[in-house]
């Protein structure tokens, strides 16, 4: 432990005294961390990112084009919003493409454990990218958000596959309409 204030040097600067170069705003911890995450982003070949504003690293889109599985040939866009409490809190991720998927509902909510209850500060944007990619390879009917799709995947795989195809080509599955999202 140091003795911080010897009485001789107890006088502090008065408020507002400027120091050279001291006026530049400081980057937040969230900003520093996301810069690191993105500089080391190592995307699988099926994924790509888009930054509407390259100066804003906190808001971007991830595009996944699966090359195998039920969703092969589709193009799915996710929006990422990284908040000021990153990485204490996970980014907010939504699916902007309408998709017939057991773990993604029609509003674009995504049920992926690391986006909510299992998020940890050691995880990165890369972890989320791999998690999302995995959802397209292995949809998980045990954790359903779209219950109809989940039940179908479990009871009738072929019918599920047909419905996924129909949705990706553009059309109705049940009473829900899906925009075409084939590449």
């Amino acid at each position: 432990m140091i003795k911080l204030f010897s009485l001789k040097q107890q006088k502090k600067d008065e408020e507002g005294s400027a120091r050279p170069g001291g006026s530049q705003k400081k980057a937040s911890a969230a900003q520093l961390r996301i810069t690191k995450d993105l500089n080391e982003l190592n995307l699988p070949k099926t994924c790509n990112t888009e930054f509407p504003d390259p100066d804003d690293l906190l808001n971007f889109k991830l595009i996944i084009c699966p090359d195998e599985g039920f969703y092969r040939g589709g193009r799915f866009v996710f929006s990422f919003k990284v908040g000021p409490n990153y990485p204490h809190e996970p980014p907010k991720v939504k699916c902007e493409t309408a998709v017939y998927h057991p773990n993604i509902d029609l509003e674009g909510n995504v049920c992926l454990n690391i986006l909510r209850e299992d998020w940890k500060p050691v995880l990165t944007v890369n972890s989320i990218v791999y998690g999302l990619q995995y959802l397209f390879l292995e949809p998980n009917p045990e954790d359903p958000l779209n219950k109809e799709a989940a039940d179908e995947l479990q009871s009738n795989r072929r019918l599920f596959e047909q419905h996924v195809q129909r949705a990706m080509r553009g059309g109705y599955v049940g009473s829900s309409y899906f925009e075409r999202c084939l590449k």
């Binding site: 705003k25 900003q31 080391e40 930054f51 390259p54 100066d55 690293l57």
Partner: peptide, 23 residues
């Protein structure tokens, strides 16, 4: 492979980042 940003007039500015194609 350094990625460089800064803050100019209180706004974040990305100077260069090679890891992300669009940037």
């Amino acid at each position: 492979s350094p990625g460089i940003t800064t803050i100019i007039n209180g706004r974040n500015k990305t100077l260069y980042m090679s890891s992300i194609k669009s940037i």
